[in-house]
Design a protein around this nucleic acid. Structure first.
Lengths: 254, 254
DNA sequence: CTTGACCTTGACGCTGCGTCAGGGTCGTAG
DNA sequence: CTACGACCCTGACGCAGCGTCAAGGTCAAG
């Protein structure tokens, strides 16, 4: 007759695990000897090895109990289901791997590759780091809500970076955002240039964006981010409104 | 300013998760409004999305905290380590899949395929089911301790099944095990036949088994299984001893 | 004023055991 | 005979990462 320690070592599990299986009703409690020790026969080793085999195959213990008692058909069906679960877990891990592979660089935390490329292009063009950071944070918010639209947005933004007029405008907006006060006298002129560029592209862009529209909440969040980020925000929105454009993130003709 | 519910929905997590991240120090507790509600700015959304991105990539929360604060080099090293872990988990699931694939048939619970094949061959040859079951349980014990030796054991056993003399002996032992009493008068004659077959193969088999020897404990366990299983066991061991062979599972010249 | 949707803290539940704590028991060695 | 180390016993807490009540307070709309 075996003690619990011997049983456990034959089956390759810990003593604690054996007691746990007793508690869960997976393995029947054996007779006790006169000092209260559990005493097992060799059949218990076989049972325990069966339990361990299923458990090691990733079967939850609650199902192990069913499986040990199941007829061959039910057993086969259960095995099939468990295999499905394992496959799903493998797919999940694979997705995680590709995801963390993208995390190698700092920006890509929570951003798709095309957004990382866009931010890198901004850096190449000499935009200041804090402007890139602000853009990054805004795009993280968009990517979380509208991941499918990110390629479209990024293609559009990258195109704008290659237009010298727009590029100059962006640079100046960057300077204004980080260095000007809300009452800076240069703001109206900047608003004029911005309105001109909006009017040049608005009609085609609005169609592209309409396919997968931002929720009102996301628009409000991005507007709030802008207002939090710079003292010129409120004034700039006012100036745009005076010029016939309402909003910021999602501009509309007033 | 956002409530906890809005924050959570922007980041795609549950309210409970946000509070949990606060509790774990992953996300700083924000200001409260006059009624005690937490109020968040949009930067909190970005932080929360970062946390969620790492957590979804399978990073344990304790490491998420480090990672959010880590410099790029440490971050890259940590990412590498996490990737290793994911790969290991994938390999583990793959092993589990192959393992449960073997479980499709009942015997293969805890047995390698060659053992299943051996048991199937026994069935083909008309051995009674309970004898096959007894063999199966014994081999489960061996496979748990000496998995690498199973091909060798099974090759040996399968060879023996194809020898007509040994086959007849095995059938008769099976009958004796399940149907005779310990004092059956036919036992001495059966012991004579068994000894003859042992002596025919012992010297070569003993070398094969010596490469990866059974522990004394395993031998004792298998002997105990035999003694538990049939009333003829004790007498048979006696008769073998009279004929110069000690033991059962592991026979030695006395 | 009521309703229903939110917010608050606190506590327990889940898996599969690991790890004390605070005992008793066994076998062997001195 | 006693001491020692290696076992055994039960009971309880701990772990991750939240989900899910419980028992309230708050807010916006009708």
């Amino acid at each position: 007759m075996l003690t619990i320690g011997q049983l456990a070592s034959y089956a390759g599990v810990t003593v604690r695990a054996v007691r746990f299986y007793h508690q869960k009703g997976l393995l029947p409690e054996p007779e006790r000897d006169r000092s209260g020790y559990r005493r097992y026969d060799s059949a218990a080793v076989v049972e325990l090895i069966r339990i361990r085999t299923l458990a090691e195959a990733g079967v939850p213990l609650s199902r192990v109990r069913e499986l040990l008692a199941a007829d061959p058909d039910a057993f086969a069906a259960a095995v099939e289901q468990i295999d499905q679960r394992l496959q799903a877990e493998i797919r999940e891990r694979r997705r995680h791997r590709t995801r963390i592979a993208q995390l190698a660089a700092g920006d890509s935390l929570a951003l798709p590759p095309e957004a990382v490329a866009y931010l890198d292009r901004m850096r190449e063009l000499g935009f200041p780091e804090r402007m890139v950071d602000a853009e990054r944070d805004a795009w993280i918010l968009v990517a979380a809500q509208l991941p499918k639209s990110m390629p479209m947005y990024m293609a559009s933004k990258r195109g704008q970076l290659e237009d010298p007029t727009l590029l100059a405008l962006y640079r100046d907006i960057g300077t204004a955002v980080f260095e000007w006060d809300g009452d800076d006298p240069r703001l109206p002129a900047l608003a004029d240039r911005l309105v001109a560029s909006i009017e040049a592209v608005y009609d085609e862009e609005v169609d592209a964006y309409a396919a997968d529209p931002m929720s009102d909440e996301l628009v409000a969040l991005l507007d709030a981010t802008f207002l939090d980020a710079t003292p010129i925000a409120a004034r700039m929105i006012e100036l745009l409104q005076e010029r016939g454009w309402r909003g910021w993130t999602k501009l509309e003709r007033a």
